[in-house]
Nucleic acid binder design. Structure first.
Length: 259
DNA sequence: AATTCTCGCAACCGCGGCGCA
DNA sequence: GTGCGCCGCGGTTGCGAGAAT
């Protein structure tokens, strides 16, 4: 039954890695490639558990890592992605070449949180801090805003789901949707389709192709209404929408990849 | 110069999903 | 079908460096 334990914790080193350990790990992975972290430490002559080796390699030793300060563009991209994905650091890291989930997580906690607070934005909800009391009151009285996977009929036929953000009290009146990730499945929301150009454009701005969000980037089911936030993160254009007060283009979930 | 405080980052821990036996 | 281990992820901790007193 099952497999043997990944490592004997009693005979493994912990704490900071030494130069010699780093060299051994690098040399081994250069020779044999990544993978099979369970057997790697023994094979490489390291007194570490596989988990520790993997972490050290991914977060520090990988040759493609971009060391150094985050750029302003990276900052803004992280903020946008976090507002959409929440604390899904690995997904966010997947959109920032050379950055690791751990690095982004640390950077968020030390720099970006403060940056958002100084802008008057709640880093947890991405809403204006001034809105919070009113919003909290609304949530208490009418329930939290909800992201729904609400397929339209034709999308149902194609097995496509769209993510929509709605406020249970006023489904279409909020310009910056609450990104409470409390999820629910709901039937198609036809009211919005009948709501005229303005409502339609808001609806489009809030819709994410669920197939893409699930990593089915090349799926035929992918018909994401939001395209290429990240590809155009540096160049806010007239076609972008005002997301969190940051003029931007929609996010292309097609390119969101797991590491 | 010595001590205390604050901050940033590397590493660890625990959990959930998945696959193997 | 079930149990167990591996892998990957997010949250948390601990330590070292620099700033402040």
């Amino acid at each position: 039954m099952g497999r043997s334990p990944c490592c004997e914790k009693a005979h493994t080193n912990k704490g900071a890695w030494t130069k010699e350990e780093d060299d051994r790990l690098i040399a081994y992975i250069r020779a044999h490639g990544e993978g099979c972290w369970r057997s790697l430490p023994k094979a490489a002559g390291l007194l570490r558990c596989g988990k520790s080796c993997r972490l050290r390699w991914i977060n520090y030793l990988r040759p493609d890592l971009k060391r150094g300060n985050f750029t302003e563009e990276e900052d803004e991209l992280i903020i946008k992605l976090h507002s959409l994905l929440g604390n899904k650091w690995s997904l966010i890291a997947g959109r920032l070449p050379g950055r690791t989930d751990n690095e982004i997580k640390n950077y968020w906690n030390t720099h970006i949180r403060r940056k958002l607070l100084s802008r008057g934005i709640d880093p947890a909800t991405h809403r204006s801090l001034n809105d919070s009391p009113r919003h909290n009151q609304a949530q208490e009285s009418a329930g939290a805003a909800t992201i729904c996977f609400a397929p339209k009929q034709e999308e149902k036929d194609n097995n496509v789901l769209f993510v929509e953000v709605k406020d249970s009290k006023s489904p279409t009146s909020e310009r910056c949707p609450d990104l409470n990730l409390e999820l629910s499945i709901s039937p198609p929301h036809h009211e919005r389709e009948e709501g005229g150009d303005e409502e339609e454009s808001k609806s489009i701005g809030r819709s994410l192709c669920f197939a893409c969000s699930l990593g089915l980037q090349n799926s035929k089911d992918c018909s994401c209404a939001l395209n290429a936030i990240t590809a155009n993160a540096n160049a806010s254009s007239a076609t972008g929408f005002d997301f969190l007060g940051l003029k931007t283009n929609p996010l292309d979930y097609r390119t969101l990849q797991m590491k």
